[in-house]
């Protein structure tokens, strides 16, 4: 019950976070979206053993989080359920790829270990960049930006409605869990025997509510098209952010900065 309420609270806090004020918040959603996509593409494009490039790539989100005045720890806290999944993706690499790469004392570091860490870093960096985008941009503004890119309205409507439906589902689940626990004191979680009916009821209740919400929308003239927020005009500052970001990312991708710094230090 508490966990659901907390999750609902966190979900809503994200909306509040997205309307805060900072230079990053003030950027055009399209500029942020394009830069984030580019960043993710570049991170993903690194080969599987390019571990040393990851700290350099991490500088971007670290810097942007500072400018956006969002603590990086908040991102890791909010993504605490997803991060273990990211870790699990490359978990078997060390077992399959045992090619020795280098020696650290008695420990032989294998290619599998490096590829696992690289994959882990890639996942974390992509998540932090996506989180920053969502934490600094309202979801409807993001959908409006997608429409500007001619993403079909069917898809953006679906995204927006799904986003809204999550809170409905969570509210209903929270109310039902409260009702359950009030009549099952001392029980931790919901007993497995009640799962079927619980989920069935949850589906029916949330469908009922979703239908009511849909009616409320219909009664106010909704006919399948969202009038997304009026996006501000794309200014020179936004263009500079996209172009500057793209140039920097390209530079980092093409020039082995970590290698250069390393060789300088060794020299």
């Amino acid at each position: 019950m508490e966990r659901l309420d907390r999750a609902l609270g966190e979900f809503r806090q994200m909306e509040e976070l997205a309307v805060s004020d900072s230079p990053i918040h003030r950027l055009h959603p399209l500029a942020k979206f394009l830069t984030t996509v580019l960043y993710i593409l570049i991170v993903v494009s690194y080969p599987k053993y390019a571990l040393r490039a990851m700290p350099v790539m991490a500088l971007f989100p670290i810097l942007l989080y500072q400018i956006a005045r969002i603590p990086l720890s908040l991102c890791f806290y909010r993504l605490r359920y997803i991060l273990p999944l990211v870790c699990a993706v490359g978990l078997f690499n060390p077992f399959f790829d045992r090619t020795p790469a280098f020696q650290v004392g008695a420990l032989t570091v294998t290619g599998g270990m490096i590829s696992f860490l690289t994959l882990l870093c890639k996942g974390v960096l992509c998540l932090t960049a996506s989180f920053l985008l969502v934490a600094t941009t309202r979801f409807d503004a993001l959908c409006a930006a997608l429409r500007k890119l001619h993403v079909p309205s069917l898809l953006t409507n679906l995204l927006l409605l799904t986003y809204r439906y999550i809170t409905v589902l969570m509210e209903e689940a929270s109310a039902m869990t409260t009702a359950y626990h009030l009549r099952a004191p001392g029980q931790k979680g919901i007993h497995i025997s009640a799962w079927g009916s619980f989920l069935g009821q949850l589906l029916l209740r949330s469908m009922d509510r979703a239908e009511d919400l849909f009616r409320a929308m219909q009664l106010r003239g909704w006919h399948g098209h969202f009038h997304y927020v009026d996006l501000p005009s794309f200014t020179a500052r936004d263009a500079a952010y996209v172009c500057g970001g793209a140039a920097l990312l390209a530079l980092v991708r093409l020039v082995d900065i970590a290698g250069l710094v390393g060789s300088l230090l060794v020299r």
Binding site: R164, D212, L213, R215, A216, M217, L219
Partner: peptide, 12 residues
């Protein structure tokens, strides 16, 4: 205009 029974459902 309809003021629905549940304001929670009216405000989305």
């Amino acid at each position: 205009g309809l003021l629905m029974q549940s304001s929670e459902n009216q405000l989305f």
